[in-house]
Design a protein around this nucleic acid. Sequence first.
DNA 1: GGCCGCTATCGAATCGATTCGATCGGCCCA
DNA 2: TGGGCCGATCGAATCGATTCGATAGCGGCC
Lengths: 372, 372
Amino acid sequence: MTRLWDVGADNQPHVDGDVVTKAGQARPTLADVAKRAGVSGSTASIAFSGVGSISEATRSRVLRAADELRYFGPDPRARSLRQGRSGIVGVVLEDRVLHSFRDPMTIAVLDGISQELDAEHGGMLLLTSTGVGESTIQSAVFDAAVFLGCSPHLRRSIEVMRQRNIPMVAIEGQPFDGVLSVALDNREASARLAAHLHGLGHRAVATVTLPMDARRELLELDASVVAGATTAVSIDRLAGAREVYPALGGFVAANSSSDEGYAAGLRVLGAGGGSGRPTAIMAQSDLLAVGVIRAAESLGLRVPADLTVVGFDGARIEGLSDHDLTTMVQPATEKGRAAGRAVTELLAGEHPPDVAFTCDLHIGTTSGPPHR
Amino acid sequence: MTRLWDVGADNQPHVDGDVVTKAGQARPTLADVAKRAGVSGSTASIAFSGVGSISEATRSRVLRAADELRYFGPDPRARSLRQGRSGIVGVVLEDRVLHSFRDPMTIAVLDGISQELDAEHGGMLLLTSTGVGESTIQSAVFDAAVFLGCSPHLRRSIEVMRQRNIPMVAIEGQPFDGVLSVALDNREASARLAAHLHGLGHRAVATVTLPMDARRELLELDASVVAGATTAVSIDRLAGAREVYPALGGFVAANSSSDEGYAAGLRVLGAGGGSGRPTAIMAQSDLLAVGVIRAAESLGLRVPADLTVVGFDGARIEGLSDHDLTTMVQPATEKGRAAGRAVTELLAGEHPPDVAFTCDLHIGTTSGPPHR
DNA sequence: GGCCGCTATCGAATCGATTCGATCGGCCCA
DNA sequence: TGGGCCGATCGAATCGATTCGATAGCGGCC
């Protein structure tokens, strides 16, 4: 029967039925608590924050008053204005949430971040960098930002944050001034993987790459695509592979999923027909590789007898049935952890260095010498 | 020569070698912009927010001044204090981020939420409800909260939010006063699934349930576990199945994963040995079902010839090899969407009703009549 | 010609806390 | 006994915007 303020939008207190304890009894503030406890606002603040000295008697008097008024602690908004800190870390995803979450690497990285943040910080604010969202990035409350594969169109947001002294960490993004980088040596790893194939005897190799730019469609990998590429990861992995196979061609996937891998796999394998067909396919992610294997098998090719397929990531995807994918295993959770730690340090005023990780080559059962 | 604000933690100004335009040129505020444009703060505010009338000439003068000072718009913290709105929606997960993200249902729900929020709101703040995290829930800045499978130990946080007039929506949680509920009719769906098995002729049936309480360990399903259960979903799904099989027993999994399903499957199938072995197993999630199938196959049982296995969710998990899992398909993304819409409406001061969804029975290839 | 009403603008109050500097005792030690 | 110091407390300033009420100017209408 009594509801003192509306669930509604604005702050306007609004009495709406009935009995009321005291006049104007809107949501209590620290000042109300202080008054009731008979202390000043500053003292009441200390009772809650614990910063500064206060006698035990006073503290408990304040807390009791708070209890009586059903005051549950300082308003986070006011606190964050005054302190300049909100305890929130923004995580900027390139894609729509769904796509990002379907990628096991992204999830592992997010988990790593959250492991390191749990203790001190309030939570991860998920933001997307696509179109409209960008204004959001500039109007949301957070203390530090982590970019997951940020592309250059974030330039303006980055400038805004820099101006606001918001520390930034980029995981696998293009290096930006003032943005700490946590990355993999994708080029070296990819070259090592290509060398493995070369060592097995493969000479006719094709690739299925991750998206190269904001366009999200299946494209043939040609010079113009590479020239206009903005995605550092794809570029570096391609460059590494081309250290071994300079003319490496193939297709650019629309996203990292096994369905895309399947589609791209069909194109790669269909194109050549007989003799033009590659003996090995390097997919830039494990999800893509799984799709490529499905495509190969649907065309009656056996892996690895007729076709070698290697991935990248070390995602340990379930349901590859009998295959154990040959891939470069990257420390995804560790990348997230490193980013989380970097955020913590930056917020503490330290100046941690960039972080670079390397990959481990996992030789599974999907790679072997070329047929005949 | 002077830069007043360091990237560092606290607000302490800190000079560190640089060119400077004017003394005390810290991060500019709206007041600085107003002064430079020769207008009052209120007018400058209108120029940015667009709320209120302003002449085109004045507006552009303000914007030009802002440009010159490299002022990029109002500080989100101050704005959120004044307006009482931050544009952030808190999403409270029961588990650690990693576990939540490994569950395809959770991801689908999150995606649904974000679809509906994209337009108006700033982003999703991920919070976890475990232990320490709870204080975080009370000290983080957000306008509305969505609980994903919230358990009773959140009672206090819920009280705090209610007191702060933060609208709350619970997806698949216990009904709480003042918390809008978006849920599935788990009981009905589970009963329907059980009826399907009964119709096929199964009489010896066992179950592998989702966790029943905060303990996360593999347990035998007995009366005491059920009595102490706190997780609405598990309870309801069990109750539904027991409408058809009143004495239904089995095991309680530690989490929803195929590994757990495997472990639980071994226990269920190992226990009885020959004649006591069930002819069908109802798993409370598809992930668990996948594990149960693996367990069955590792024991030399064929599905569905020797054992029928059904799941719940309709997760379309890749890598079930040849099986098409019989399951109750729930509209997970829709649940998220409904929650997102509810949040929007609640924030607009409306009073939307609870939402209930139903499931579709998908009959795949993992269920059939009992052997012999 | 006077009044009405609208637009553009301003000044001051406000959101709810934290924090800086000052004050006031009490206690210790010389 | 007095100086110095430390702990507890208070008042006032501050964080950076938004918003309310008031005012000035100006055109239109009767």
